[in-house]
Design a protein around this nucleic acid. Structure first.
Lengths: 146, 146
DNA sequence: CCAACCGTAACACCGTTAGTTACATTAAGC
DNA sequence: GCTTAATGTAACTAACGGTGTTACGGTTGG
């Protein structure tokens, strides 16, 4: 695949936790909703826990639950927790610095990328988990397992 | 690598063509500036030509040159010509549609991605090739090969 | 004619991601 | 305490995309 689905799956995970309304949800249950392996879910949750978005409880009858109110978690928070630092392909972009263009293009591109990234994250910041939960609401009367 | 460098290299290519001021530039010369293989350059240029940003001339003493004024080419144009349609990881994201969350999350995510993409492209649209050429200007008095 | 150049196919290599198995650790409930 | 259910993480495989490279046919100026 061209990109990774880390962000998309992470949003799904948090939406699912919102749907389950604070219960301690095991990774296997989330995995069933995403249709993947529980380890994949736990790997992503590891980052979400480190970012303070999710609370974790070990042991029997343990699981994951949201660590903040729905309206205080935005897609930007999730994006930053899920994705590694964006390189925009600059990682392996090493132009010939003996050429006048190659010597300066990198800094110019970096500036443009930072602005583009900011523009994207500004849009993501407008969407809260609460609004996503609201969109899901007509379909989830109670809090049932899949 | 986390991402691809198609966009970064494409901008470099167009900046180089601007630097060479309308001359027919062979792919090997551009490749020397980017420090890569000429075929890689020609592959990317293929897309730029199709997008109408670059003019190509086959045969001896042929090469590539800009097909539009510097102030009418923005980073967004280059981005769209260089990158394939953005999937945002949705390509391999196929949640369990039997789960209420899995069934609706895809549409919600797609909407958010479209907005995020638009926010990013709006920033890219503000940067023209003319402004990049201007930033390169102090360093390129004439039009010399590297 | 020939030398230079484009266009593209074919291929190998490498890094990333997803998926999977395995196992140590932790904690609730009896 | 023992059992059971769960997290956390390492290790491995398979698949995929991107880059770099060689090769070669087509085109054109001199």
């Amino acid at each position: 695949m061209t990109g990774n689905s880390r962000f998309a799956v992470s949003v799904h995970i948090l939406a699912y936790l919102a749907y389950r309304q604070g219960a301690a949800v095991p990774s296997a249950e989330i995995a069933a909703s995403v249709d993947t392996n529980p380890v994949v879910i736990r790997r992503l949750l590891s980052g979400l826990v480190k970012a303070g978005l999710v609370h974790t409880q070990k042991g029997a009858s343990g699981g994951f639950s949201l660590a903040a109110p729905l309206d205080q978690i935005t897609l930007r928070d999730i994006y930053r927790a899920a994705e590694p630092a964006p390189t925009h392909g600059m990682a392996h972009f090493a132009p010939n610095t003996k050429c006048p263009v190659g010597a300066k293009i990198e800094a110019i591109l970096h500036t443009a990328f930072v602005k583009a990234q900011a523009g994207m994250e500004a849009e993501l910041a407008l969407v809260t988990l609460a609004s996503i939960h609201e969109q899901l609401r007509p379909v989830c009367p109670g809090s049932k397992k899949p």
